[in-house]
């Protein structure tokens, strides 16, 4: 039985595909996008995290901590928090367990024309797992989708594409050097997988996070539009930079260092895509 680490299952996620959906966030990501708003999804390891709201600063968690130099996720502090604010981030699921969990709401998902979306982190890190789980869900009539950075081996990518109903594929930074600078990875595997996706016949949507001065430049958006044009994509969804992106970093003991001006307005140039005949929507 395959296993995967999940850091969140969000019911009624409304921006993750058609209809009312449940989104599964897998833990772990090969990318290091500078603007990432889900730092919980970066490490594949199970972590201990503390919710930022409601802390009484009673000191109970610090008192019991035996690993002040570096958290080893022993979890000793979890039970001492009087407000229950500390928890593990990351739960290991077998395909069967996750299937059973998702099945519980499948009636509503089907009724409302929705389904399940696998996101992350990067869900393709769990390609074998998904290859097993997705057909189980389809068997009971649940629509499936993935949200991916596209960064994966060809084999892993195809494993999932061959079974899933719908793909939301990120096109972030088209320039090769800038991609490495801002996402920590080369965009070559991404662009290769995009070509595979085009040929696959699977329904897909392109997605671009609009990061001021990074992805939202006319140059980058034009390059994306060129890519998406005639690709068979249903359209493109533009996700304006979330100014709350940095808020979850302290929760996982990290610091947020955006290399761009967070405060500047994003260039949500829907018109540019329309000129290319691409349906664009701001999310």
């Amino acid at each position: 039985m395959k296993q995967a680490i999940v850091f969140s299952i969000e019911e009624f996620s409304v921006y993750d595909g058609p209809g009312i959906r449940t989104t599964v966030f897998f833990k772990g990501c090969p990318m290091r996008c500078n603007w990432c708003h889900n730092p919980e999804g970066l490490s594949q390891k199970i972590q201990v995290v503390k919710a930022p709201n409601g802390c009484l600063h009673c000191g109970a968690c610090e008192k019991i901590c035996a690993h002040k130099d570096g958290c080893v996720a022993c979890g000793n502090c979890i039970s001492v928090c009087p407000r229950g604010l500390i928890r593990y981030s990351g739960v290991a699921y077998t395909t069967k367990e996750l299937f059973e969990k998702l099945k519980k709401n499948s009636d509503y998902l089907k009724q409302a024309g929705g389904g399940v979306t696998f996101s992350g982190g990067e869900c393709l890190l769990y390609a074998d797992f998904l290859h097993e789980l997705i057909p189980m869900l389809k068997e009971i009539g649940v629509h499936t989708a993935i949200q991916t950075s596209g960064y994966a081996s060809e084999a892993d990518f195809m494993k999932v594409i061959s079974v899933v109903d719908y793909v939301m594929f990120d096109l972030k930074v088209m320039d090769r050097e800038k991609a490495i600078e801002y996402t920590g990875r080369s965009n070559e595997p991404i662009l290769r997988n995009f070509e595979l996706l085009k040929k696959s016949g699977v329904k897909f949507m392109a997605r671009t996070p609009l990061i001021p001065g990074v992805t939202d430049t006319e140059e980058n958006l034009t390059a994306i539009a060129e890519k998406v044009k005639n690709s068979g994509a249903l359209g493109i969804e533009l996700l304006p930079y979330n100014k709350m992106s940095g808020s979850k970093y302290t929760m996982v003991g990290m610091e947020y260092h955006p290399k761009f001006d967070e405060k500047s307005e994003v260039n949500a140039n829907v018109e540019l895509f329309r000129r290319y005949g691409i349906q664009a929507k701001i999310m």
Binding site: F12, G19, I20, Q111, A112, K281, I282, M283
Partner: peptide, 22 residues
């Protein structure tokens, strides 16, 4: 923020409908 665009509004409407139908 769930209501930041029309898609959120539409889906909340669907959710209420779901509640009623169930």
């Amino acid at each position: 923020t769930l209501f930041r665009n029309d898609e959120g509004t539409q889906k909340v409407a669907q959710l209420v409908k779901l509640f009623v139908e169930n």
